[in-house]
Design a protein around this nucleic acid. Structure first.
Lengths: 205, 205, 205, 205
DNA sequence: TATGAATGAGCCTTCATTCAT
DNA sequence: CATGAATGAAGGCTCATTCAT
């Protein structure tokens, strides 16, 4: 278990800052070397702390992975829910959703890589249950939006299910080739993806 | 190194058959539990051999992963090259390519899952060089076909690069949700993916 | 690689002390059972550490053998070089050299036994290169002194080369029979050996 | 246990010839790589037999080492005993003994290297008891001759014990530097060694 | 005789984690 | 808070040996 965080606000803030730094560093190392291939000693070296010191900020290696996934999913899910709750049109919501999503790919590339690469690890085991639930929520939200897109304008996707899976595949694969200063911005990529999904319908329009 | 295979044809054939069975079983276990999370003992239990006995058929755990990837990529690449060398039109080639690819997803789902999930593992290290090269070849071949699709009919993709990455993302993600007896056949999925890529162009047709 | 030694002087000193104890214990066990026949578990039992704990002090079993050889050869070589650089007569240097050498046999008998018994092990492999070089240096130094002995007084050895090999054989074999409280002291043995080498010449004197 | 050798004389002879070849090859490999570092598979490769086939000729790896030592010690001891039983003068016996000994170094260099290098291995364990006894006998015989050398001519060795150990050290070390076509023949070396031992006395003669 | 498959114990080493300081 | 020492349970792999064929 992580050492109980301090109660005094000043100390608490310092604790949080350092913990945050540890998690970010860990995300970088996990993204580069993989979760299993990274030892606590590796993390110690990367953070500048000794092995024992790490355990003040993380409860365990597993919880560290949870923290990385949470840092990614919590704000993403929050924004996604806000968008889904807005009164924009369904296809506008879809565009915004993918933009926000790609924005996370851009700004939390390491987190995203870890979340994606360690998918198998997260698949079973109680310690990841929370993370799995969040992912499920996000995918469900996505599915709902796609459904509403179709509901608002009939016959939109050749196959809605396939479109959903395709979208998940495309976006989740992005961090593996995306270059921050590349030819395409995250936004352009987001719009490009949506275009692919929506286009088949449009041709008949 | 794997134990030198026997010289007599009969024994050789039995050796090959068993080795093949070991690789297939390993693919199943790796797909389910992940490469790192699977121990040699796990494989021993799954194959019915003792730990040491496995090493008659595999040279090492690493080489076993190579074997799995090779079993997947060699025939896939061979078929892909045949298609690319055919005199079918570029977009017909593309369709065939994705169908063949999806056929591998269907028939070698475990291999595909492993190849995809352990992407990070394969990324560095001399022992995987061969595998990386095969993947690169396949992706290059795909890129070439996409290029020819555009060459034959101007303005085909909103962004050809993006289309390539999208396709890779979609197909590679497929084994994670595809169900053999599901609503969509592998072929339908393949065609669906190609449709997504080609449609934007077509709408202007 | 051995765990990075601590930086604080106090800890560093404790680390060094314990490491030294581990090496000495290992020398004793290796001398008694042989390098290959001694398992890390054996060493753990002998040192009172758990198997894993040993690795704080040694980088590997191989490096432990290097450490033992170094502890023996570094001071021996240093003293030998000092003697060779002195302005004593060549045959005085020879006597001193063999005395110093035998002194090492006496005070580091275990190290000497290991160094001698594992000669074959040390013969090839990059990890022992350093040790081989030290041994070579020592033997060369010995050869040089023998040469100067002859240069100062013509016709000293029936065959200088043979004398060198004989000396190496005699001294290196000593730890296998030498008893600390035996009839002959290390010094007497040293002088006895030199006497054997020099006598043939002397008889003609 | 080695498979029972065949009873028919013809088969028996073939068996013996092959067994002899296996032992000789094993001696070569053990000399080069060391007993512990040589696996049965290595021996299989070196002999051209399969692992299982080896066990028709050797009972176990340990017994193979015994065989090598026996092939060396039996004839050496036999010859040594013949010499010791002859009515030659003691110092003539000594010379002959060392010549015979060096002859074995020359003609069975691999056996000698193994016998010497694996000294530690042979030191304990019932399976080597026989070998240890043979070595002991040889050394005792040597000691006896040295004693008689002194008995026949007073004051021969500065220290008889030391002379014995020195002789053992010198000769046993020889296979590690001796070159068959080198400047010195085995005989010259033998005589050189004896000269070293006898000379101190002789100078007073 | 000879083979190669198979065993299972044991090897060296790594690693997440704990704890006295 | 932080350290580095220490643990002990795996981990991947090798190896002498056996045995059905």
């Amino acid at each position: 278990m992580a050492a109980a965080p301090p109660t005094s606000p000043a100390l608490r803030s310092r604790f949080d800052r350092r913990r945050e730094a540890v998690v970010t560093t860990a995300a970088r190392v996990f993204a580069a070397r993989g979760f299993h291939a990274t030892s606590i000693q590796d993390l110690a070296a990367a953070t500048g702390l000794a092995a024992g010191g790490l355990y003040h900020y993380i409860g365990s290696k597993d919880q560290l992975l949870v923290a990385i996934c949470d840092e990614l999913m919590e704000p993403l899910l929050a924004q996604a829910q806000a968008i889904a709750a807005s009164d924009a049109s369904a296809d506008r919501q879809l565009r915004q959703l993918v933009r926000v999503w790609m924005d996370h790919v851009e700004r939390h590339r390491d987190h995203m890589l870890v979340f994606q690469q360690e998918r198998r690890v997260l698949e079973s085991g109680r310690q990841w249950q929370h993370v799995r639930r969040r992912r499920k929520q996000f995918e469900q939200l996505l599915a709902d939006v796609l459904e509403r897109v179709e509901a608002e304008r009939l016959g939109r996707f050749a196959d809605r299910d396939l479109a959903l899976h395709a979208l998940l595949g495309m976006v989740n694969h992005t961090p593996q080739w995306y270059q921050p200063r590349g030819r395409l911005s995250a936004e352009q990529i987001a719009d490009g993806y949506v275009e692919l999904l929506l286009a088949p319908e449009r041709r008949d329009a």
